[in-house]
C-alpha cells in the first residue's frame, strides 16, 4: 500500500502545482477537430471541381463556338455524338421532370398514408415490424430495382399496351416514363415514409390527448392537429423525396428507355439528366465540349440538390422551433 500512497495520496502542494499539460490529449483533440473539418472541405472541393468543369462551357471560347446558351436551353435536340453535335438540355430536363413527377405521384401518397397509419393507427407490434421492413426496402440497391423494372414491370405493363385503343392513342414504348417512374418511386417511398413518420412521431402525445379530450376522433385529431403541427416536417420529406427522385441514376438508366424525346406522353421513352451522365461519361473524351456539357449537367444536379437540402433544413428548423417553442 505504500506505493499506492505515493501514487495517489494528495497534498495541497500537488493541487497547486500547475496541472501537467497532457500533450497527447491536446494533440488528439486537435486532430479530431481537424478531421471533422473534412466534410466542409469535401463539399467545397466537390462544388469547385464540378463547377470548374461545368462552367467552362460558358468560358472556353472553342467550346462556346460549339455550344451556347441558345443551343442549351432553347433548342430541342440532344444529339452529342453526330457530325454536328446538338446539345440541347431541354429534352433531358423535361424527361427528368416527367419521371420525377410520376415517381412522386406514386411515392408521396403511399409514403405519407403509410406513415400516418404507422404513427396514428397501428398497434406497437405492427409498427415494430413495419419500420425495419421499410428500412430493408430502402436498402435494396437501385441497380436491382432497375433490373426488376426492366425485366418485370416493363413486361407487366406491356400486357396493357395490347389493348388496341390504348396502343393507337399513345403508341407506347416498352421502356418508358411510367416504368422508370414506378422504379424510382420504389426507391423514394422509404424516404418519404421515414421522414413523414419521424415528423408525425415528433408531435407530442399531449397534443393528441388534448384533441381527443375535446371529443375529436382519432382521424379528426390526425388531420386537424397532427398533420398541421408536423407540416414543416412533411414539406421537408417532400423536398428530400424530390431530391432523391431527381438525381436517381441507375433506375433511370435501366428503365426509361433513354431516348431524349421532348413530349408529355408518359408511355414514351425519356432520358433523364443523371442517366445521360451515367451513359455518356464513360465514353467521352476528357476536355471536349461534350465532356464539359456533361459537367454542366452535374452542376445543375448539384445546385438542385443544394437548394432542396437548404429548403428542407429551413423547414425542419421551423418545425423544431414550433415544437420546442424556441
Amino acid at each position: 500500500m505504500s506505493q499506492l500512497s505515493g501514487n495517489t495520496k494528495w497534498s495541497v502542494a500537488k493541487l497547486k502545482e500547475r496541472s501537467p499539460v497532457r500533450w497527447h490529449e491536446r494533440i488528439g483533440e486537435t486532430s479530431i477537430f481537424i478531421i471533422s473539418l473534412a466534410s466542409i472541405l469535401l463539399i467545397m472541393l466537390m462544388a469547385i471541381f464540378i463547377l470548374k468543369e461545368g462552367l467552362m462551357v460558358f468560358i472556353n471560347p472553342s467550346i462556346r463556338a460549339e455550344v451556347n446558351f441558345r443551343e442549351l436551353f432553347l433548342k430541342t435536340v440532344w444529339q452529342p455524338i453526330s457530325e454536328v453535335p446538338k446539345y440541347s438540355l431541354l429534352p433531358l430536363i423535361a424527361g427528368t421532370l416527367k419521371t420525377s413527377f410520376v415517381a412522386l405521384l406514386i411515392a408521396l401518397p403511399l409514403g405519407m398514408l403509410a406513415a400516418l397509419f404507422i404513427s396514428e393507427c397501428a398497434p406497437k407490434w405492427l409498427s415494430e415490424f413495419v419500420k425495419p421492413t421499410i428500412e430493408l426496402l430502402a436498402a435494396i440497391p437501385s441497380v436491382v430495382i432497375g433490373f426488376f423494372c426492366l425485366m418485370k414491370v416493363a413486361s407487366w405493363l406491356a400486357h396493357a399496351y395490347e389493348i388496341k385503343w390504348l396502343h393507337d392513342a399513345l403508341t407506347p414504348h416498352r421502356l418508358n416514363t411510367l416504368v422508370g417512374g414506378i422504379g424510382i418511386s420504389i426507391a423514394v417511398v422509404p424516404i418519404t415514409f421515414t421522414l413523414c413518420e419521424e415528423a408525425f412521431h415528433g408531435v407530442p402525445e399531449s397534443y393528441r390527448a388534448a384533441s381527443i379530450a375535446l371529443g375529436a376522433t382519432k382521424w379528426q385529431t390526425a388531420l386537424g392537429v397532427v398533420i398541421p403541427t408536423a407540416m414543416p416536417g412533411v414539406i421537408a420529406a417532400i423536398l428530400l423525396s424530390f431530391g432523391r427522385a431527381w438525381g436517381e441514376t441507375m433506375i433511370a438508366l435501366m428503365a426509361t428507355g433513354n431516348a431524349p424525346l421532348l413530349d408529355l406522353n408518359i408511355l414514351h421513352s425519356v432520358r433523364t439528366l443523371a442517366a445521360t451522365v451515367g451513359a455518356e461519361m464513360p465514353e467521352v473524351v476528357v476536355g471536349s465540349s461534350h465532356y464539359h456539357v456533361l459537367f454542366l449537367i452535374g452542376t445543375i444536379l448539384l445546385s438542385i440538390s443544394f437548394t432542396v437540402n437548404g429548403l428542407s433544413q429551413l423547414a425542419i428548423s421551423s418545425l423544431r422551433k414550433k415544437l420546442t417553442g424556441g
Binding site: 469535401l42 441514376t249 452535374g298
Partner: peptide, 24 residues
C-alpha cells in the same frame, strides 16, 4: 457548418459523386 456540409453531402445525387471522383 459541419452539420450543413454533412446534410448536403447526404443529398448529393450519387452520379455527381462519380463526376467528382473523375475530375478530382
Amino acid at each position: 457548418l459541419i452539420r450543413t456540409s454533412i446534410s448536403n453531402l447526404a443529398g448529393v445525387p450519387s452520379i455527381v459523386y462519380g463526376m467528382f471522383g473523375l475530375s478530382f
